[in-house]
Amino acid sequence: MPAITVRVNGLEVTKEVGARTLLSTFIREQLKLTGTHVGCDTSQCGACVVTLDGKTVKSCAVFAWEADGADIGTIEGLADGDKMHPMQEAFREHHGLQCGFCTPGMVMTAVSLVENNPDIDEDGIRHGLEGNICRCTGYQNIIDAVKTGAKAMRG
C-alpha cells in the first residue's frame, strides 16, 4: 500500500492508502471528515466535490494516491471557527437546501465559481452548477444563495 502525504484544510497528513481507495473514501473514512458526502458514487451528482490544488473535483472520481503531494480543501475548512463562510451563511439565509445532502458539494463549487469569477452572473452560476445535482430544492434558492454569497465574498 502506498503512503501519501497531503495537506487537508491546511494540515499535513501522511497515511497509507489502498490502490482502490477513492479520494472521497480517504477523506471520509481515514480522515473522518464526513462533511464530504457520497451521493451517487458514479461521479454524476457532485455531492463529493472538494478542491484539489485549488480546483474543484469529484473526489469519488479521483484515486487517493493521485492526490499525493496535493492541497485538498473540504467543506470543514471553510468556516472560521464558529463563523460560517459567507457562502455558507448565504445558503442558510436563503434556505438553499432542504435535506442538505448535496450542500457540501454545492457550497464548495459555489465558492470556487466566485473565486474564479467574482462578478459571476446568474447564467454563469447556473452553468457552473451543472455538475451538482439537488433532488429537493428545484435549485432556485440555491441560485439566490450563490448570488448573495458572491456579493458577500466580494465584500
Binding site: 461521479s43 457532485g46 466535490v49 484539489l52 480546483k55 474543484t56 473535483v57 469529484k58 472520481a61 479521483v62 463549487t109 470556487s112 465559481l113 457552473g128 451543472e130 455538475g131 451538482n132
Partner: peptide, 9 residues
Amino acid sequence: IGDPHVRNR
C-alpha cells in the same frame, strides 16, 4: 464537456 469538475480532471 461534462461539468466544471470533470473539466478540471
